[in-house]
Design a protein around this nucleic acid. Structure first.
Lengths: 248, 248
DNA sequence: TGTAGATTTAATGTCAGACAATTAAACTCC
DNA sequence: GGAGTTTAATTGTCTGACATTAAATCTACA
């Protein structure tokens, strides 16, 4: 592993890239200990702070973990599913919030992906997944629920549906799509009638999942997508009209 | 923004979290300049190297960018789609390689997600997308192509299909699923007959996309999934048998 | 002999201060 | 007024030191 001191890029970035490539390329394997900071500094012919900045970059991506003490050091970290979930959600959320992605586009992507899980989930869901879905529907029907809590329950409902497919890779991929929608959904105010319609659709989906009828699950999700898009459109239209009224 | 010096967590990690939360929460907006390192050090009552480690953590996640010079500093970075793609691919690839995810599971997830794009892509694909797909099919048929190049072309074909849906969020989500499969696919050796079958399936898919027949695209992907799973199974079975022979 | 406690040691975490490199703005001179 | 020079602000890097942590080792005592 070598770096180029004459490169315009920061030394710490170069070192981080070199180590990252070694991890991705399998030359450093999970739980393997990296040389100590002092040794790395010597190898790369830089100072310890520079090495530390490189290691912090890697730590930020969960590629390594560090331990203090006599037998401590930096170790190649196994990227766990929960860590990957968290990164996925953060990235997706920021991507949506920073790039003026329309509600319509995000919503379409989210439901398209979720429909991909529908047949598998209908086939494989356990009683647990079904119970979670029912419990969340029950929660959604409670009076006095804030819009945020309603949305959170909505997310939990859909996660149960996705997890029902029994494919952790699929669950991981969907985590970003489903969770990143939450801030967008939170911009919507749900009237009692809106909630009733959504809950009815959720019940239809849960019933289809219980009956292990993949096509019905897919159809239910499509209907829910249409309902969500309509709702968002009317909310945003009303808001725009109110603002125009203010301006006029 | 405050940190807790008595917390067991590293100060630099705490500072990074505080700034990240400010960005996610919208208190720091895109292109806004953060205080200089010296000012941040004063605010958080830590030294400059500690602040720098925190900033490097954020830079590793593309949350900020830094500029040298008189008017330089750290700026909140707009997370671009390409950056998000790259992060997504890295995370997905590592997740698969470090967690003993079976080929079967990864393959199932990938094709399930890709089928989610099929109807949209059939409806909206441009001539460009179609041309890319045809070009990649042509490349795949060339003699003397290495397995790696064949796989790379396969990825390009499927990306064109996904991009055809015209939904950048969907493309972003799929990037991880499709690209992360490549290392796994590279473990397979493709005989000429295998390639011919795959190319035939690709042609069927391209024809369906050209005809804007979403159901046929979905069916083609399902057939390709079955073919891929069969192929992988036989390759791995043969390899296992050879290893057993050696051991015996 | 075994174990509890003290010591050692090796590593990361943090600090202070300095200098180098870079870049934009301010200034100066023609 | 414009080209070149200077200045100032900021990040990048280095050196050396000390603090903190935790495992391993040693020591004393039962």
């Amino acid at each position: 592993m070598k770096i180029d001191p004459s490169s315009p890029a920061d030394l710490s970035a170069q070192i981080a890239t070199a180590i990252r490539d070694a991890i991705i390329g399998g030359r450093l394997i999970v739980d393997q200990r990296l040389p100590s900071e002092a040794e790395l500094a010597e190898q790369f012919e830089v100072s310890r702070p520079t090495v530390r900045e490189a290691l912090k970059r890697l730590a930020a991506q969960s590629l390594i973990r560090t331990q203090r003490g006599a037998t401590g050091g930096a170790f190649v970290n196994r990227l766990s599913f929960p860590d990957a979930y968290a990164q996925q959600i953060t990235t997706s959320t920021l991507l949506l919030s920073m790039n003026a992605v329309s509600f319509e586009t995000a919503c379409e992507a989210r439901f398209a992906l979720e429909r991909a899980c529908a047949p598998l989930s209908a086939e494989r869901r356990t009683a647990d997944h079904l119970a979670t879905m029912r419990a969340e529907i029950h929660r959604q029907a409670q009076a006095g629920l804030t819009d945020e809590a309603f949305c959170a329950s909505d997310v939990a409902f859909h996660r149960a549906l996705v997890d029902g497919a029994g494919n952790p890779v699929l669950s991981y991929q969907l985590a970003g799509a489903v969770e990143a929608m939450q801030p967008l959904m939170n911009m919507i105010t749900f009237t009692a009638r809106d909630r009733a319609r959504i809950i009815a659709l959720h019940e239809g989906i849960a019933n289809a999942v219980e009956a292990q009828d993949g096509k019905a699950v897919t159809a239910g999700l499509t209907a829910l997508e249409a309902e969500t898009q309509d709702l968002a459109q009317s909310v945003f239209a009303a808001r725009a009209a109110r603002n125009a009224g203010k301006a006029g």
